[in-house]
């Protein structure tokens, strides 16, 4: 990186510091290299993070004009979270002293995801661990002088709006006495609220009492997801097309709204057909109507 800012003391050039690792993932699972987006994160998915850092220690001593036997550096791992230009909250999660006998370190942290939000700003930095007695005139002279750093910004949540909200609950506990208490899933939505944000008004409840369904949804089993998606589509399309003013009703609805989504699904399942002809199909050939929706709901295994 070409620096644009001058510090009042000598710092470390990039060539003397090597970082590796930058691995992140769910705790207890294989970590993967840090990327721009961490897929599949939510508040329940605690994270593990590590970065390896290695300093050419003699080179650092020369660059900072501090005798290598007196030089104490500290490698610091900081993680910030919360949206904004700067993260809302930054904490030091690991720090390791580096000296002539130990010029490399693996910085590690476990992150409690319930306290994370939106993004992670991961910074690996080197600061002066201890002022040296025999330092040069422009050597760093304060403890924690910033000497070098590298950052990665990771999006951990796409805002929820483009996602299909899912929750796993026990139907016996959450909906006691409801006639659907033994159903594998239940889609909660309010008819007629076509203007509502899809992510805010449609919610899929997966029955944790129902053996196997939760697992299949978590694993992304294509057939299960297809059946669920088709269920949502069928419910919404059926209701929409039976309204006399369906076409007008679904006009002028912004992206992300339920109505916009339903309109798209209608185009996907019944390309080129009017609402009334779809309604007619639903009435006279309900089997074909359903199958067309099931077919449109095919869940691709590809990301």
């Amino acid at each position: 990186m070409r620096r644009t800012t001058a510090f009042p003391f000598l710092v470390l050039p990039d060539s003397l510091v090597r970082t590796g690792g930058w691995m992140i993932g769910e705790r207890g699972s294989p970590l993967a290299p840090v990327a721009d987006i961490l897929e599949g994160w939510d508040y329940q998915c605690d994270l593990e993070l590590n970065v390896e850092i290695e300093v050419d220690f003699q080179g650092a001593a020369d660059a900072l004009e501090i005798p290598s036997e007196e030089l104490r550096l500290e490698a610091v791992l900081k993680v910030g979270t919360g949206s904004g230009t700067m993260p809302r909250r930054i904490e030091i999660l690991d720090r390791v002293v580096l000296n002539s006998g130990r010029a490399e370190a693996k910085l590690e942290a476990t992150l409690d995801s319930s306290n994370l939000s939106g993004r992670l700003l991961i910074e690996c930095g080197i600061v002066l661990g201890k002022p040296a007695g025999n330092a040069g005139g422009i050597s760093p002279r304060w403890q924690a002088s910033r000497l070098w750093s590298e950052r990665r910004d990771v999006l951990i949540e796409d805002g929820g709006a483009s996602r299909f909200p899912i929750e796993s609950v026990s139907f016996k506990r959450s909906f006691p006495g409801a006639p659907f208490v033994a159903a594998p899933w239940y889609i909660d939505w309010q008819p007629g609220m076509w203007r509502l944000d899809f992510g805010g008004s449609v919610r899929l409840y997966v029955n944790s009492d129902f053996p196997g369904v939760g697992e299949r949804v978590v694993e992304g089993d294509p057939l299960t997801l297809q059946a669920i998606l088709a269920d949502v589509m069928r419910q919404m399309i059926s209701l929409a097309v039976t309204s006399a003013d369906c076409d007008e009703m679904l006009e002028d609805l912004g992206e992300g709204s339920v109505g916009h989504q339903v309109r798209n699904w209608m185009d996907l399942a019944f390309p080129g057909q009017s609402a009334s002809s779809i309604a007619s199909l639903a009435e006279h050939r309900p089997g074909r109507f359903s199958a067309a929706i099931l077919s449109a709901a095919e869940v691709s295994m590809d990301p």
Partner: peptide, 14 residues
């Protein structure tokens, strides 16, 4: 009429 209202899609209880 909260068409701009939403919840996190997973990770907790609404």
């Amino acid at each position: 009429r909260g068409e701009h209202l939403s919840f996190a899609s997973s990770g907790g209880t609404v």
